[in-house]
Design a binder for these strands. Structure first.
Lengths: 340, 340
DNA sequence: CTGTTAGCGCGTTCAT
DNA sequence: ATGAACGCGCTAACAG
């Protein structure tokens, strides 16, 4: 039993489809009597308008496409949460699409044409120029944390460079000098910016940078910690490029009986919910990613409404000082703790 | 500059729209020469088919709607992750819709008609009968963790009753007798089932159930712990209806200097990633929610493909014994610890 | 192999 | 206030 159409309602109510359409969209120019009759029939038939057809007719989909690398970790979940909130406030749906490789990416993007009114692209790991190249220019888009040379597309970005530098300065102010950075994959723009910020601040403080390359996953943090423990070499702080790696390092250090932060301080980046809950609680750079998601939707909605906006908006992370960096390091002469 | 349509391509290539449509959809009955010409023109015009129009024509949206209460917490994020994985494997998009109140819920559902091929409804807090009532019957749906009296709709459910009972038995086997349950809101089916399972197992063990009503949020766990500390009353275990509340209780107890698990054991439900990372690590019932999400999509895809399936599938949570319930309780005569 | 034509379900002029 | 007719962009019979 197929669903009723507007035509069924019109026939049953002995009116034209135009009238039915009018009452459906709340137009005023309908006689109350006619309106009632149509509403009755619609209710009786269990009729509901077909959103797809409506989209085609009005060329408005009331949906915006969201392109994410994957949903792993709390970071992207949080972003999605913010977008969802902003979207439902505006009566918009979210059409999800995960971008794994770069190849199917363009194809996926095209699959969205005609089904969304705009696109939020959040792909720090994919060359966005290649992405945008194949994109229909007529569809409003906003780039979030993407590396792009084009300045004709609205962009939202986190000040990763400044954030990383701020964290280094915080550690230095606490008396740390052997600060190692555990980075994200170098193919990721955000990871690169954090490396750059770290290195700049280290040099500025007259210290020698040392970067261990990771991949944003917990295990990479643990591996980095293990490597450092193998040859401590005066390391008194680990600054990971995200919280998950920081937590991996934290747990590895804890299990090895290292005193945190006395012996080695630990710091992360993002401030995912976990950072506050783990113990000792993790010092990190707060990135209000839910808010960034919400602002992306807000700007896109404006763009769709005809207020195009080609600015670059920069969001500055905030330093959250917690337990893992609270004290100054022990004197290097002191013997290693034998906790647990 | 509006986007090119199939007609533009046809005109430019001096063929009919039918031929263009054929090459677009990879039909074989097209002369290679014609095919090449069409492909050239399409590329030159930057033409991409309009998914919306295609949906209308084929009455297949290649998208499935996902209805969630909200994205708060790791639980629903995980579910979404599983669905997304299963969906992209099948070339399906996910159309998100958050159900806050029950009123706009039905309306939201109808907004999806004509834009999705199926619906995953995950709403333990809303009366699904009311939800389904207004729903077009022609659209395949699957209920996940919903309370429903209808058995004509495929359902996926976690064995919350059995899981809660299993946890109680575990605690009892560890010598705990004063086991308090911190529940979710009683309007939530899952919360109710967990209460029932807890109570049944307590009675079975000859113990007196005691339930503190919470709301699945961290703060409720902390509040429950505070209340218990005010009048310990022989309580030697707190079993929270989800991990977030268990963690709230855990931290509150820790801050109050209570020895965990020596004095009071703590257990949760769900096994969110945090449960393993917190310390002491949390004993909990593992619900593979990502897998449940994936299976929901899989079953829906089958139903859409014409293999309708009205079974009720039950997923059994698995007991994860971790640090918070490792030991037996101290003798009650022993004096309260004065840790920290 | 290719073109013509009729829908898909709805919004929207333009008449009346 | 109402109805007839066209268009949105594409697919799928049906002819040729």
């Amino acid at each position: 039993m197929a669903n009723a159409t507007i035509r069924d309602v019109a026939r049953e109510a002995a009116v034209s489809v135009a009238s039915v359409s009018r009452v459906l969209n709340g137009h005023s120019n309908v006689r109350p009597e006619t309106r009632r009759k149509i509403e009755d029939v619609a209710a009786r038939l269990g009729y509901f308008p077909h959103a797809g057809a409506r989209n085609l007719s009005t060329s408005r989909a009331h949906a915006i496409g969201v392109v994410l690398p994957d949903l792993h970790g709390e970071f992207f979940s949080e972003a999605l949460r913010g977008m969802d909130r902003a979207a439902s406030e505006r009566g918009l749906h979210l059409l999800l699409s995960n971008l794994h490789d770069g190849e199917r990416a363009v194809e996926m993007l095209h699959t969205m044409r005609g089904r969304v009114d705009g696109l939020v692209i959040m792909a720090p790991h994919i060359d966005p120029d290649r992405l945008l190249a194949g994109l229909p220019p007529s569809i409003p888009s906003i780039l979030v944390n993407c590396a792009t040379s084009r300045d004709d597309c609205p962009t939202l970005r986190v000040d990763n460079f400044g954030g990383a530098a701020a964290m280094v300065r915080h550690l230095v102010s606490r008396g740390r000098r052997g600060i190692v950075h555990v980075s994200g994959p170098t193919s990721n723009v955000e990871a690169r910016a954090r490396i750059d910020g770290y290195e700049a601040a280290m040099v500025e403080a007259g210290l020698t940078p040392r970067v261990l390359i990771g991949d944003f996953m917990e295990e990479a943090g643990a591996a980095a910690a293990a490597e450092i423990l193998r040859a401590p070499d005066g390391v008194d702080a680990i600054f990971a490029a995200n919280d998950m790696m920081a937590i991996g390092a934290l747990i590895a250090l804890r299990d090895a009986g290292v005193a945190i932060p006395d012996q080695i301080a630990v710091a992360g980046f993002d401030d995912i919910p976990l950072a506050r809950l783990i113990s000792p609680s993790l010092t990190t750079m707060r990135v209000d990613i839910a808010d960034i998601g919400a602002r992306a939707i807000a700007r896109l909605a404006d763009a769709i409404a005809g207020t195009p906006d080609h600015r670059l908006e920069l969001s500055t992370p905030e330093l959250m000082i917690r337990d893992t960096t609270k004290t100054s390091p022990r004197q290097s002469g002191e013997k290693q703790g034998k906790a647990r």
